[in-house]
Design a binder for these strands. Structure first.
Length: 126
DNA sequence: ATTCTAACA
DNA sequence: TGTTAGAA
């Protein structure tokens, strides 16, 4: 394998995640490690960063579904629009927008949103 | 020895 | 999610 890529065993050690979870997150399209000729997963430095980020968000209280919605589905401008809404201090009743309400169930939403935006921005260049 | 897929307590 | 069987 090329330098800068690692087998799942090493990723397990470096992230503290179980192999099961690492592969499961891949099934959610949260990461897309390359495959070797023998069908072995090869994780890039970026895949690992991504896994660590997912771990941070989970610790922060976000559900996998919320993380998936944010990291996989929305375009950069969608996330930005949500961020703007937040920074403008808009208050919307949970019942009014149930889906949106579950997106950022945290106190430090601003920090999370900044991080998500940073990731979105980084997406295009690589 | 490691990793992979599929499947189920 | 954990874990395991059987293949690669």
């Amino acid at each position: 394998m090329r330098t800068g890529e690692y087998p799942i065993g090493e990723v397990k050690e470096r992230t503290g995640l179980t192999e099961r979870r690492i592969r499961y997150y891949e099934s959610l399209n949260l990461i897309r490690p390359r495959r070797s000729e023998g069908n072995q997963r090869l994780y890039s430095e970026r895949d690992i960063e991504r896994l660590l980020e997912i771990k941070r968000l989970l610790d922060g209280g976000l559900s996998l579904r919320a993380i998936r919605n944010q990291m996989v589905q929305p375009s950069a401008d969608e996330v930005e629009r949500d961020a703007e809404s937040y920074f403008e201090g808009k208050r919307i009743a949970h019942g009014a927008r149930p889906h949106q309400a579950s997106l950022y169930p945290l106190k430090d939403r601003a920090a999370i949103i900044r991080r998500l935006l940073r990731d979105q921005d980084r997406e295009d260049g690589e």
